[in-house]
């Protein structure tokens, strides 16, 4: 087994997860121009939903996953309706603070309900793994990559061909215009939150299968995925996927050069550097570049 190949493989696996989560940030940002800070906590809740289904209700993992995705979608929609919608027109600060408060709230709820013990959805012992291009990859990890790729294809087709998907893209392009041509904006926003949250739950479950579940998992994963969204160009769907894999790779190759304790800090560093030097991201347009900097002058 080669170290380089292994690091790249680890980067791709982590990147797949980040990509799934980044999609949620980017879709919501695309339409509402707002960072859904509580997105990472929806992921965490999704993982716990699945954990509960498997361990207390005895469901098979695939059914638990579907239930968790459905519940998280519902949670996302409720969050949007209760906490964000009333603040849609009250500046940028109020929804951001609400979102931060929500994420703290969900984290604390999880801590009370499920405790601070580290849980996992891993079943049986860690399988030995297959050697692919010199890297050892377990079946679970292959599952992560396969699921992510599958979901991304479905999402792509949905956005491209489904009526609702087209409406979502229209709303992303120009929300007021979309409203005037008869797109039900509230419905589209609801669907966006539902899809984003379901994807987050999927990511949460995959993390639970591969690693651990704990109440604080949403923060770090959320920030990394947000970084991925920014790296790819926030608001841009393909960018989120690209950014996800980019962050995963940078982080996993980065620990080759710096102490592993700083692994989580790498993503933050990438985020800060991106925000400062190219807030529009890799695939962002000039228009989006203005958004990160001082308010566009006379718009």
């Amino acid at each position: 087994m080669s170290v380089t190949a292994q690091l790249i493989a680890n980067g791709i696996i982590a990147g797949a997860i980040y990509a799934l989560v980044a999609l949620g940030y980017t879709m919501v940002y695309g339409i509402l121009k707002f960072i859904n800070f509580a997105h990472g906590e929806v992921l965490m809740m999704g993982a716990y939903f699945a954990y509960t289904c498997v361990n207390y209700l005895g469901m098979p993992i695939w059914l638990a996953l579907l239930v968790a995705m459905a519940l998280s979608a519902l949670l996302g929609v409720i969050i949007e309706r209760v906490a964000y919608k009333p603040l849609r027109y009250s500046g940028r600060l109020a929804p951001l603070i609400t979102a931060i408060a929500l994420s703290i709230f969900l984290q604390s709820m999880a801590l009370i309900i499920w405790g601070s013990e580290i849980r996992t959805l891993r079943q049986g012992s860690v399988s030995k793994g297959n050697e692919i291009f010199g890297a050892v990859i377990t079946n679970n990890q292959l599952l992560i990559i396969a699921t992510t790729v599958g979901v991304l294809i479905i999402l792509h087709l949905f956005l491209k061909y489904a009526k609702l998907g087209k409406a979502m893209r229209a709303a992303t392009d120009n929300l007021p215009l979309a409203a005037t041509i008869g797109i039900e904006v509230d419905k589209v926003i609801g669907i966006t939150f539902a899809i984003g949250s379901a994807l987050a739950a999927l990511a949460g479950v995959l993390v639970g299968i591969e690693q651990n579940i704990e109440p604080t998992m949403g923060i770090t994963l959320g920030i990394k995925a947000f970084t991925a969204a920014v790296v790819g160009g926030i608001g841009n769907i393909q960018g989120a996927v690209l950014g996800g894999f980019a962050v995963g790779l940078i982080e996993n190759i980065g620990i080759w050069f710096i102490p592993s304790g700083y692994k989580d800090a790498i993503a933050f560093l990438v985020l800060v550097i991106m925000l400062i030097f190219r807030p529009s991201g890799i695939l962002g347009t000039k228009k989006e570049e203005e958004m990160g900097k001082t308010e566009s002058l006379f718009g």
Binding site: I223, F268, L275, I276, P279, K293
Partner: peptide
């Protein structure tokens, strides 16, 4: 480096710095 950023971007960047310092 952060002052060119506005609103929520500034918020995230300062959050990132905070976490780097904690690391």
């Amino acid at each position: 480096p952060c002052l060119r950023l506005r609103g929520d971007y500034l918020a995230i960047a300062t959050l990132g710095f905070g976490e780097i310092i904690r690391a």
